[in-house]
Design a protein around this nucleic acid. Structure first.
Lengths: 247, 247
DNA sequence: CGAGCTTTTGAACGCAGTCAACAATTGTGG
DNA sequence: CCACAATTGTTGACTGCGTTCAAAAGCTCG
């Protein structure tokens, strides 16, 4: 249940192909991208607020998050990345980082120079459009999270987040019969949902008690997706997946 | 204090020029874009969730918002647009609308065909990059709003929102000595901040009592920006404005 | 096997939501 | 220009979801 076997370039090809078919030349351009591999331990920043990066980071294995802190010391996680995502693709056109990106679990990442990426984008407008689209889907997820955090109570929020993770992980082949790895602590779940760790814990217990999820260690099982979807007021439209990934 | 005198194409040129200098040819390409003008009354949808638009909408005058509703009838406003913004630029690469866009105040808008925009983007990669950047700044604002709604209490949230509006409106010349028009009801403010109208009202009164804002009708005055910035835990970094617009 | 993290539990407190009524403002037609 | 309707803003009282603090119990890993 890991993506380690896929080559970095191949992962990108597969991802973009889920949107439209690439020509052989376009595929080759992606595979030829120079990618510098690295491992990152949990809780380590990959890029930090205020940085002016000259490269972007492709997540190959593990989970990363985009986060920011308020002055009074609270942290909010604004996005979660799963393998195949590019957490800081926006840095390609935004000079300075407006938030930090950190590994949540042990991560394998690949760094790509902005200059290389820009060259590819200029030569292949369809690839540029596809990358642009990626960032637009990210933005769509932000919008849904705003609704989630702003208007739903924590029980529903948690259900919604778990639904999203199930759909996104399934799209990259990381879910097996309703079960997936979620290498995240409850403190981080709280930071994701804008709540306190104590309350996050109680809500998880409630979801378990209601039979919406089962957990063993860092593994989550969703026995009845329909019920979780209902509890989370979840509609996958905002993920902009292909038809066959939505079902 | 209106942008009505500017031509639609000129408005876009001015906006993109705040990022980098356009060549004459690029400027001309923008000015030549076919733009269909329209007026929209308050509370009217410009595009709706589920739509598959073939055009995009440039806001010339007034305020629009991006919003979504939860199943139990609550509304969350995820974004506010001020003149010069393109509320649904993301529809250029996202087939189906994942949220609705509505006029808040009486609006003047200009519609541009996706096909025209795509043509310009393919021919002028720098313009494509500039539009892409626009959507990335939108995303950055979503991230900050997630922090705002997730982690700050309503008093601070409100202050933060008002700071953002001041900065953004000032960047398009709609603020005069700390005063700007805010044609928004308190119900809408509540929907922006993920709170109830009653509580929004009380927080506004508190801000008034503390001398952070003054209001007369739909006009807001910020007598001491530094104090409002402090109360809102506000850092304009995330707006990615030019240096001189930040000061 | 102990150190350190993560999860769980209990109890008190407080921010914010809800309901309901009233005041003020805005807009409209006569 | 006034009278009336409709929308918007304001207030009070009650309720409840969620926070905070503190401590205990379970895990993980060297």
């Amino acid at each position: 249940m890991t993506n380690g076997t896929d080559s970095p370039g191949g992962l990108m090809v597969r991802k973009l192909e889920s949107i439209f078919t690439l020509t052989d030349e376009e595929q080759q351009a992606l595979r030829d991208l120079r990618i510098e591999l690295a491992n990152v331990e949990p809780d380590r920043d990959i890029v930090s607020l205020g940085d002016r990066p000259s490269q972007t980071c492709l997540l190959l294995d593990g989970f990363t998050c985009v986060y920011k802190g308020s002055t009074d010391g609270k942290r909010q996680i604004m996005a979660l990345q799963v393998p195949g995502d590019i957490p800081d693709l926006h840095s390609l056109h935004l000079e300075v980082m407006d938030s930090s990106i950190a590994a949540i679990s042990p991560c394998k990442v690949g760094f790509i120079q902005h200059s290389d990426l820009r060259r590819v984008c200029e030569r292949y407008p369809r690839i540029a459009a596809a990358f642009w689209r990626e960032t637009l889907v990210d933005a769509s997820i932000f919008r849904e999270w705003l609704l989630n955090i702003g208007r739903r109570k924590t029980y529903s929020r948690m259900a919604h987040l778990l639904c999203e993770l199930l759909f996104r992980l399934r799209a990259v082949g990381l879910v097996e019969s309703g079960t997936f790895d979620l290498p995240i602590t409850q403190v981080e779940l709280a930071d994701l949902l804008g709540t306190s760790p104590v309350h996050a814990n109680r809500v998880i217990q409630a979801l378990r008690a209601d039979g919406l999820i089962r957990t063993q260690g860092k593994t989550v099982t969703v026995p009845d997706l329909a019920k979780l979807v209902e509890a989370g007021d979840f509609d996958p439209l905002y993920l902009h997946l292909k038809e066959n990934e939505t079902a």
